[in-house]
C-alpha cells in the first residue's frame, strides 16, 4: 500500500496576525510555522494504516524553504520519504493552482491512497484534496473519521452535519480528507528524529512540474475584521475586570 500524505505548513495557531504594508497579504515577519493541524491527523492515519498493512508513506508539501522543517517533522514521526515542491517565498496559490501542483507530484508516484487534512487553518478553503482527486481522476471522500481498506476498495466513515455519520465504499486509488481529532497524535521519538536525517527528501521546483499556474482569483485586501456587535470589553487587572463583569451580569444583563 502506497500512501501519500499532503501536508501544509501554516502560521502557528497563537500567532498574532496583521496585514502587510501592501494590504493584500499577511505580514510574515516574525511568524513561526507549524504543520496544519488537520494534516497532522492525516499523517497519523497514514502511519497507522502502514503499521497495519505495510507499504510506504510519502509526505508531500509545497512551499518555500521553511517547509523543510515541517517535512522533517513528518519524517521523524515515521514517514518513509518526502517530496518538497519548492515555491518562491511569498507565492500565494489559490486552491486550484495548489491542487494542480500537488496532483502533478502525486501523478508521478502512483499512490493507492492520498490523505490530507479537511482544510487548512490559514486560508481555510477546504478544497485542495477534492480538487486533487478531480485532476487525478481518483474517487474521493471528505471529512473522514475512519479508514478501513478492503482489498482494492476502502470503506470510510464520513462525518455529516448534526451528529450524523455515513459509511461509504470507494475504489482505489482514492483521495481522503481527514477530520481533526480522530486519533491520538504521536510525538517524534529521538530515534525518529535521528533517522529522519537519513531519509530521502526530493526537492522539485514548481517549474519542473509544468502545472498550470494561472490564478482564478485576486485578493484585493486583507484586514482585521471590524466588530459589528456592541461588545463591552474589560481588560487589564484580572480581579478588577472580573468585578466589573460580575456587576454588569447582575445589574445590566440580570443573569446572575
Amino acid at each position: 500500500m502506497k500512501i501519500i500524505v499532503s501536508v501544509k505548513q501554516v502560521p502557528a495557531r497563537d500567532s498574532s496576525l496583521r496585514a502587510g504594508s501592501d494590504g493584500k497579504r499577511l505580514d510574515e515577519t516574525d511568524l513561526t510555522y507549524e504543520m496544519n493541524e488537520p494534516d497532522a491527523y492525516a499523517l497519523e492515519e497514514a502511519l497507522q494504516l502502514k503499521e497495519k498493512l505495510g507499504g510506504e508513506v510519502v509526505v508531500l508539501s509545497a512551499g518555500p524553504d521553511r517547509v523543510a522543517q515541517t517535512i522533517r517533522e513528518a519524517l521523524a514521526k515515521g514517514a518513509d520519504r518526502a517530496i518538497h515542491v519548492q515555491l518562491n517565498d511569498g507565492t500565494q496559490l489559490d486552491p486550484l493552482a495548489a491542487a494542480r501542483l500537488l496532483a502533478k507530484a502525486v501523478e508521478a508516484e502512483k499512490a493507492d491512497i492520498v490523505l490530507t487534512g479537511l482544510q487548512s487553518d490559514d486560508l481555510g478553503y477546504g478544497q485542495t484534496g477534492v480538487i486533487m482527486a478531480e485532476l487525478l481522476g481518483y474517487a474521493h471522500a471528505t471529512i473522514v473519521m475512519e479508514v478501513e481498506p478492503q482489498g482494492d476498495h476502502v470503506r470510510v466513515k464520513r462525518e455529516l452535519e448534526d451528529g450524523w455519520f455515513q459509511n461509504v465504499l470507494l475504489p482505489l486509488p482514492v483521495v481522503l480528507t481527514i477530520q481533526s481529532g480522530i486519533k491520538k497524535l504521536r510525538y517524534a521519538t529521538l530515534m525518529g528524529i535521528k533517522k529522519a536525517k537519513t531519509k530521502e527528501m526530493k526537492v522539485i521546483s514548481s517549474g519542473e512540474l509544468q502545472a498550470e499556474f494561472a490564478t482564478g482569483l485576486t485578493i484585493e485586501r486583507v484586514y482585521v475584521p471590524q466588530r459589528n456587535k456592541q461588545s463591552q470589553i474589560f481588560s487589564g487587572d484580572a480581579k478588577r475586570a472580573a468585578h466589573e463583569l460580575a456587576e454588569k451580569l447582575k445589574f445590566e444583563a440580570r443573569v446572575i
Binding site: 475584521p225 466588530r227 459589528n228 456587535k229 456592541q230 461588545s231 463591552q232 470589553i233 474589560f234 481588560s235 487589564g236 484580572a238 480581579k239 475586570a241 472580573a242 468585578h243 463583569l245 460580575a246 456587576e247 454588569k248 451580569l249 447582575k250 444583563a253 446572575i256
Partner: peptide, 28 residues
Amino acid sequence: PIFEAADYGVVGDLFEVVPALVDEIKKV
C-alpha cells in the same frame, strides 16, 4: 473572533480571570 459574538468580554488570562470571577459571583 469570539469577541465579535460577545456581549461582554474580558481580555485576559483565564487562569486569573475565571477564579476571580467565581469569587465575585459568590459575593454577588
